[in-house]
Amino acid sequence: MNTLDVRVENGQRVIEKWDSVFEAVSAEPRRQLVFSLLDAPPNQSVPLPESAANPNVPIDADRLRQELYHRHLPMLADMGFIEWEREPLSASRGPNFEEVGIVFDALHSAVGDIPDSLVVGCQRLERKRQENIEI
């Protein structure tokens, strides 16, 4: 394989990885689950559906449980970002979790630069911004 072929192959692989990351974080329950897993110790699972719910928005727990079970959890598991159990319904970090977790770590690091319209209403980002102000 020549250098150009290797570059093309690597480029396509990276594009697919980024597409997976952005697809994973394109829905609120999946974002909340990633945040919850980042807040938990690396080898600990988090309970569902509560760990996938936005704490600022009332939820229909039964509906969220169904959405998690049939859509969100299988998608994240297929990407290797999480592993999940049906009984009791819970999730833990998967072998590729760092690929999606780093996006949220980067957001936390840059929280002072993020527009208020993307921070106010997100308890975790608001808390991180307040922590940075207090330092």
Rank of each mutant, 00 (worst) to 15 (best):
17 K>G: 00
4 L>F: 03
100 V>R: 03
7 R>K: 10
48 L>E: 01
14 V>I: 08
78 D>G: 05
50 E>K: 14
26 S>R: 09
27 A>D: 12
102 I>C: 07
67 E>Q: 14
50 E>Y: 04
73 L>Y: 00
18 W>Y: 12
42 P>Q: 09
110 A>R: 11
6 V>S: 14
124 R>C: 11
38 L>R: 11
34 V>T: 10
57 V>L: 06
27 A>W: 15
36 S>M: 09
44 Q>G: 01
3 T>L: 05
91 A>P: 03
116 D>T: 08
69 Y>H: 13
46 V>S: 06
92 S>Y: 07
43 N>Q: 13
68 L>V: 01
35 F>G: 01
2 N>Q: 10
41 P>H: 14
127 R>I: 03
81 F>N: 00
28 E>P: 08
31 R>M: 05
59 I>E: 08
45 S>R: 13
132 N>M: 11
16 E>V: 01
124 R>V: 15
23 E>K: 15
21 V>Y: 06
114 I>S: 10
111 V>F: 09
129 R>E: 04
128 K>E: 09
130 Q>K: 12
113 D>N: 14
17 K>Q: 08
83 E>R: 15
114 I>P: 08
36 S>W: 09
58 P>I: 08
85 E>H: 14
9 E>H: 05
58 P>N: 11
122 C>I: 11
110 A>D: 07
60 D>T: 04
18 W>G: 00
99 E>P: 04
78 D>T: 12
39 D>I: 07
37 L>V: 04
86 R>M: 08
96 N>K: 12
125 L>M: 11
96 N>C: 05
46 V>R: 07
34 V>G: 02
37 L>R: 07
23 E>L: 15
43 N>R: 13
17 K>T: 13
62 D>S: 12
112 G>S: 05
66 Q>D: 08
34 V>H: 10
133 I>C: 06
128 K>V: 06
116 D>H: 15
44 Q>E: 09
29 P>Q: 07
125 L>Q: 14
76 L>T: 01
26 S>E: 11
43 N>G: 15
94 G>W: 04
22 F>E: 07
66 Q>M: 10
62 D>Y: 15
63 R>H: 11
38 L>Q: 10
12 Q>A: 02
132 N>K: 15
122 C>S: 13
98 E>A: 12
9 E>V: 00
52 A>E: 02
79 M>Q: 09
70 H>Q: 07
14 V>K: 00
114 I>K: 11
29 P>F: 08
126 E>R: 15
124 R>N: 12
17 K>H: 07
118 L>C: 14
132 N>L: 11
84 W>I: 00
47 P>L: 05
2 N>I: 02
95 P>K: 14
40 A>H: 15
52 A>N: 10
103 V>E: 03
106 A>M: 12
66 Q>T: 08
99 E>C: 02
19 D>E: 11
86 R>I: 05
45 S>Q: 07
43 N>F: 11
35 F>W: 12
126 E>K: 15
80 G>N: 05
5 D>N: 12
130 Q>R: 15
84 W>C: 02
84 W>T: 00
102 I>M: 11
104 F>I: 06
24 A>D: 04
68 L>N: 01
18 W>M: 03
76 L>A: 02
85 E>Y: 03
56 N>S: 11
115 P>R: 13
6 V>N: 14
78 D>Q: 09
80 G>I: 03
83 E>N: 09
108 H>N: 10
115 P>S: 13
133 I>A: 14
64 L>K: 08
107 L>P: 01
9 E>L: 03
66 Q>S: 12
85 E>I: 04
99 E>G: 01
68 L>P: 02
127 R>C: 00
91 A>C: 03
